[in-house]
Write a protein that binds this DNA or RNA. Structure first.
Lengths: 252, 252
DNA sequence: AGCGCTTCAATTGCATGCAGTTTGGCTCTC
DNA sequence: GAGAGCCAAACTGCATGCAATTGAAGCGCT
């Protein structure tokens, strides 16, 4: 379902694009968690292509910010910092305000029907896993972007939405999707009515609240990761056996 | 000069990145015009690397929208439509408003000095070629983005600015940079003063006027290219010999 | 001459191979 | 038993080679 949401920007049917799409989906559905390793060999074998192609696909995804590529090291699914997550949402808000501004009052009946159908699908998926809900919610926004007929806007909204998706899997708590679905419906209604200012405000509030629900308090770990996180625990074991830090730290 | 404006997002020092930077620069300085062919062999030979690497670089630039990659065909420098150019500027306006919003009143003296130095460089370059002026003007904006310390924002602003650069070379008339330089100075001043609303307004107006100066009338060719452009002429030759369409159409 | 067909050089799509780097275990020592 | 150092396996960086596709010149036909 919702196959029409696939990015068509220079993504035809060559093997690289296929792998990109597969990995992208695996990432945003959290089948691949942030930090998961992505060895070129393994990808190549899994998708039945050579390492060259897998490598190229990783390059593309790195350009989108979904994977991190360190020289001579295994590529990993990106692990955005909290601040980066917040920045991504800020950018997303502006981009999507632009989307709805362009769309307000300009949607055909068919398009509105399509949007409603999508939200219905979201509704139906409420019983399923969080991963699917998050993906559908994201695809709603990408569907909106597509309706602007602006390839550039589609590209940026898609990318930043995927990124946000990724951060949700990192920083989100159990998640409640219901209100988000209602907000989607409200946005559709305002778009149909053609009230640009209103729908921009709705979109802003919608994304802002998603961000605030998801990105819980900065958890003063403005330093990097793990070492800071473990700092408080370290106190409790000073006299006991010390946790093998190098082993753990390597994971990141 | 202005080497610090180089995008550092997963671009360290591997050969692919080097080639990307070189091509990017060649494109925005119009050494490579839109539509110019970029055969993998030629690039590889020119930069002393294998075709694999050249290919990978082209993939990256395609992801940035600077080159177009058609299956089994030679890659070419992107030729954005007029509408895409306008869309790019619209997106850019929003992104850069975000940049100056974050920056207003938060710049160190050193940063302000750096900005002023850059504008001075722009001033000095006024006698030179348009290409250099345009590049410097673009790099001013990228420099601003860097100061937000938000890698994502840097990436998007850079990309969209490069794209706009590209469109300037397509649709711009001879160009007068002087007012742009003054506007840059005004923006710095407002940033230093810390008036967020004012500087956002300035940036908006600045980019909007650049876009309007550059993107001259839509030249009613909202359809695709050539075939539509030639449509009106076709009427006049219905009874005469027909223009050799395939020959001309192939050029694009 | 103008038009279509055939053929060949140019070019891409992709896999494989080799060299250099990193990783993680293993041993050897204290 | 803990820690430093070494070594093999794993992995990446890159070049090269081969098959497939494309573009355009050459050729014959009307």
């Amino acid at each position: 379902m919702a196959a029409h949401v696939s990015s068509k920007t220079s993504e035809s049917s060559d093997k690289v694009s296929v792998i990109c799409r597969a990995l992208r989906r695996a990432i945003i559905e959290q089948a691949l968690e942030p930090g998961a390793k992505l060895p070129e060999d393994a990808l190549g074998e899994r998708f039945g292509v050579s390492r060259t192609i897998a490598r190229h696909a990783l390059g593309q995804l790195a350009a989108e910010g979904l994977v991190e590529l360190r020289r001579n090291r295994i590529a990993v699914v990106a692990t955005p910092s909290w601040q980066e997550a917040r920045d991504a949402f800020d950018i997303r808000i502006e981009l999507e305000r632009l989307v709805v501004r362009q769309l307000a009052g300009k949607l055909t009946k068919a398009q509105i029907a399509e949007l409603n159908a999508h939200v219905d699908a979201e509704d139906r998926a409420r019983g399923g896993t969080d991963a699917v809900s998050i993906r559908l919610a994201t695809e709603f926004h990408i569907l909106l972007a597509h309706m602007t007929n602006s390839p550039i806007l589609v590209r940026y909204v898609s990318e930043v939405a995927y990124r946000c998706c990724l951060t949700l899997s990192l920083y989100s708590r159990p998640h409640s999707t219901e209100c988000a679905i209602n907000e989607h419906r409200a946005i559709i209604a305002a778009l149909a009515k053609g009230d640009a200012a209103k729908v921009m405000e709705l979109m802003h509030h919608h994304l802002d609240s998603v961000a605030n629900r998801a990105l819980v308090a900065p958890t003063p770990q403005r330093g990097r990761d793990l070492l800071d996180i473990l700092a408080p625990y370290a106190d409790e074991v000073t006299s006991n056996r010390v946790i093998k830090l190098p082993k753990l730290a390597r994971r990141s």
